[in-house]
Design a protein around this nucleic acid. Structure first.
Lengths: 250, 250
DNA sequence: CGATCGCTTGACGTGGATCAAGGTAGGTGG
DNA sequence: CCACCTACCTTGATCCACGTCAAGCGATCG
């Protein structure tokens, strides 16, 4: 029994590029056969972007629709003097450019933080945007997705505007955990965290040095551990209390 | 001639509660007769909220749809210890709760900053959300509106995360100007700014005292003037340069 | 005419930035 | 296998932008 369960886990999590996306979908709805097939078909067209390259350049009018299979990406904006702000992250299972609201006015660069494998989601985007009658569950998921993302944005504004460095850092670590968990990539409070401290700083509005010291304090207080690319949350309750974090439930 | 022009201005800007909204609509599209009538009909049901009251309480699932006729409101979130962050402002001509994406997960309070007159926009919201075939222009405006607001959110994130106090303040003053201008309520770089310095601080992630000093510097540098509820932008170009502001064009 | 609200100013404290210098690990070429 | 490089993390010293505290000031209002 145990062996077979492990096998399933292995099959789902390691082998199939659609696994994180499927995991997200199935965490909130079931899928019709037709929908299953649409998702399966995504694997037919995989694209790889190397670490540091741009998936979407600022100013391009339409974002090609993708679903992240592996790796992390981010949306960011830069100032003329080099200051940069990471607006949001794209994790495995997240979609890029599928939800509408595309316009060059939203001038953002989308960059690959690690090497990233992307599934071409053109068909998926068509189904979602034309409200295809035979894809009710997928459409429902993306409706909720829009709400979920909006909430993330608002959390981010509160984080940047009102939280201290310690609170901000804790808040982001919790957010990333919950998102990785939804994609089936976090277990027992532990998930792969591939960001450099410099990138964390760019997302949190803090300097690299201060991120380092802040995380040392979180570690010292027994709240988290960060080692060789993995984050572990030891004391979820105290973490949530520290930064007034509330899990997003849609 | 001049007299009659003034009269028009008077009629449009002072008398009709739908004027700011109409001005926004017409700045980007024409309207069919049917659409005109729908907008006119908004005046039939006006609601007033007193300064400081809540238009929408955090946690309520659906936001009643309104269009702001007069006054300013804001969306904000609070922390248990009393810290507050203003997420965004609602100015005359702005809609509240008309765009979809409503959900209790987006826990925000909407509060009246000044006394606010709101037009009941139930019918408008129905038309927009059901994509009524006979309201093509209004639907187009709200499609663009979603993009516009999103861009504002991203600007806000950049502002809070990466700009200095001086830059932030300048950036917000420019944003508010451009929005008032679209509603026909700014002329020659001058518009009514009804916010207290404390409220500006809550939007900018700064303390009241620092907002005061920052605005003094902007004034001292000859960039703006703030007097008795009016903001004037003297040197738009230097202001834009100072904070890398880019007008949102949708 | 006090009371309240918002603006202003000064003195002082501090969170986080900046500067500078190692340290460590993986990666590459000889 | 070693020597070197580069990317990232860590640490200490110092600086400064902004917060906090406290007081006063001018309007508006009942």
């Amino acid at each position: 029994m145990i062996a077979s369960r492990l096998e399933v886990v292995d099959t789902i999590h390691l082998r199939r590029p659609t696994a994180p996306f499927l995991c997200r979908l199935k965490s909130s709805v079931g899928l019709t056969d037709k929908e299953e097939r649409l998702v399966e078909a995504l694997q037919a067209d995989i694209h790889t972007y190397a670490m540091g390259t741009h998936i979407h350049a600022e100013g391009d009018s339409t974002v090609h629709p993708w679903v992240v299979a592996t790796g992390w990406a981010c949306r960011m904006r830069a100032l003329p003097d080099g200051r940069r702000q990471i607006i949001s992250f794209f994790l495995p299972g997240d979609s890029i450019g599928v939800l509408g609201l595309q316009h060059e006015a939203v001038q953002c660069t989308i960059a690959a933080i690690t090497d990233v494998e992307l599934l071409n989601a053109t068909r998926l985007a068509e189904a979602v945007n034309h409200m295809a009658a035979d894809m009710p569950n997928i459409i429902e998921v993306f409706r909720k997705e829009a709400i979920y993302r909006r909430r993330q944005q608002l959390d981010n504004i509160l984080r940047l505007g009102r939280l201290t460095a310690l609170e901000r850092t804790a808040h982001l670590i919790l957010e990333l955990h919950d998102r990785m968990e939804i994609a089936g990539l976090a277990h027992d409070g532990r998930y792969p965290l591939l960001l450099t401290q410099s990138q964390l700083g760019e997302a949190l509005g803090l300097s690299l040095v201060h991120v380092n010291r802040t995380m040392q304090q979180l570690r010292h207080d027994g709240l988290i551990e960060l080692k060789s690319g993995w984050a572990s949350i030891f004391d979820r309750e105290r973490m949530e209390l520290l930064c007034d974090y509330k899990k997003i439930v849609v």
